[in-house]
C-alpha cells in the first residue's frame, strides 16, 4: 500500500453525515442519573456498602467524568485510580453494570442511564478502598512470565530484521495496557488467585510469537504449570472485557497449541 502524497490528495468539500451533525450540534440534553457505587473504607467501617449519588449530566460524558463530578462536588472521600482519561493508561478498570470496563472509555449514554448505574471494584483482587484494589498480585503474575525479549549471541549493529508479516503474529497482544480488566473478569481467577490469568498469558504470547525472541521454551514451561494456561476454561469473558479489543481467548489458545506442538 502506498501512502498518498499530500499533493495528490483531493480538494473535496466537507462531507457531512448525520453522525457528524449530531457530534457538532453542541446541543446538550441534560439527564439526571443515579450512580450506585460500592464504597469500602476499612478505616471507617469493616463492610462495603452501596451508596447512591444523583447528578445531572450530558449523557455523552464518560463514566469517569461522572465519577470525577461526584468526587469534586459531592463527596471528596470517593477513591479510585485514573490518569489519562482516554483509554491508554489502564488505571480505571472497574465493574460497570456488572461488566469490566474502563470508566474513561465508557460513555454514560451507553450504560442504560435511565436505571441506576452500578460501579464496583474489579473482582478477584483485594479491595483496599472504594474502587482501588491491590494490583501487586496482578503485576507479579505478569513479571513471572518473563515479559521481555530474550536473545542470545551478539547483537546486530543495526536493527534486527523482522518482516511485517512476522510483526502481525504478535501485534494484537502488544496492545495490552495491563488494566487487569481481562484477568479480573475470569471465573477461574476469581476462584483461584494462583492462576496466572489472561493478562499474564497475553504478555507471554507477545514474546513467544515474536520472531526475534529466543525465550519461548522457558515461558511455555512456566505456563505449563498447574496454575498456568491449562486452567483456562475458554469462557471468553476476557475477550469481552478487553478495552483494547485484543482477542485474548485466541491468544491463550495459541499458547496452548504451542505447548502441544512446540511450534511458535
Amino acid at each position: 500500500m502506498s501512502t498518498p502524497t499530500i499533493e495528490d490528495a483531493p480538494q473535496a468539500g466537507n462531507p457531512h453525515s448525520a453522525g457528524l451533525d449530531a457530534a457538532e450540534s453542541g446541543k446538550v440534553e441534560l439527564i439526571t442519573i443515579t450512580v450506585r457505587i460500592r464504597r469500602f473504607n476499612p478505616e471507617e467501617h469493616p463492610d462495603a456498602v452501596w451508596v447512591d449519588y444523583q447528578l445531572t449530566v450530558d449523557p455523552k460524558i464518560r463514566v469517569l467524568d461522572a465519577i470525577n463530578t461526584i468526587k469534586w462536588e459531592q463527596d471528596g472521600t470517593l477513591t479510585y485510580r485514573r490518569s489519562c482519561a482516554h483509554g491508554v493508561c489502564g488505571s480505571d478498570a472497574m465493574r460497570i453494570n456488572g461488566k469490566n470496563r474502563l470508566a474513561c472509555k465508557t460513555l454514560i449514554k451507553d450504560v442504560s442511564p435511565e436505571k441506576p448505574i452500578t460501579i464496583e471494584p474489579i473482582k478477584g483482587l483485594t479491595v483496599l478502598k472504594d474502587l482501588v484494589v491491590d494490583m501487586d498480585p496482578f503485576f507479579q503474575a505478569y513479571r513471572d512470565v518473563m515479559p521481555f525479549l530474550i536473545t542470545t549471541g551478539n547483537e546486530p549493529t543495526r536493527e534486527r530484521i523482522q518482516s511485517e508479516e512476522d510483526v502481525q503474529r504478535f501485534e494484537d497482544t502488544t496492545k495490552c495496557i495491563l488494566c487487569a480488566a481481562c484477568t479480573t473478569s475470569c471465573p477461574v481467577f476469581w476462584n483461584d488467585g494462583q492462576y496466572f490469568g489472561p493478562a499474564a498469558i497475553v504478555n507471554a504470547h507477545r514474546f513467544i510469537f515474536d520472531s526475534r525472541d529466543e525465550g519461548a521454551e522457558q515461558r511455555l514451561e512456566i505456563l505449563n504449570d498447574r496454575d498456568g494456561v491449562w486452567r483456562c476454561r475458554t469462557t471468553f469473558n476476557c475477550t469481552d472485557a478487553c478495552p483494547r479489543g485484543i482477542e485474548v481467548t485466541k491468544a491463550i489458545q495459541e499458547v496452548k497449541r504451542a505447548l502441544v506442538t512446540r511450534r511458535f
Binding site: 518482516s163 511485517e164 512476522d166 510483526v167 502488544t174 515474536d210 525472541d213
Partner: peptide
C-alpha cells in the same frame, strides 16, 4: 536510541525489507 529500543524488543512498523519503517 531507536536501535536500542528495537533491540530491547520494541515492535516497530517495518519496511518491506524488514527494517524500521519511517513516516
Amino acid at each position: 536510541a531507536v536501535l536500542d529500543l528495537e533491540k530491547m524488543g520494541l515492535p516497530f512498523n517495518r519496511t518491506p525489507e524488514g527494517r524500521i519503517d519511517q513516516r
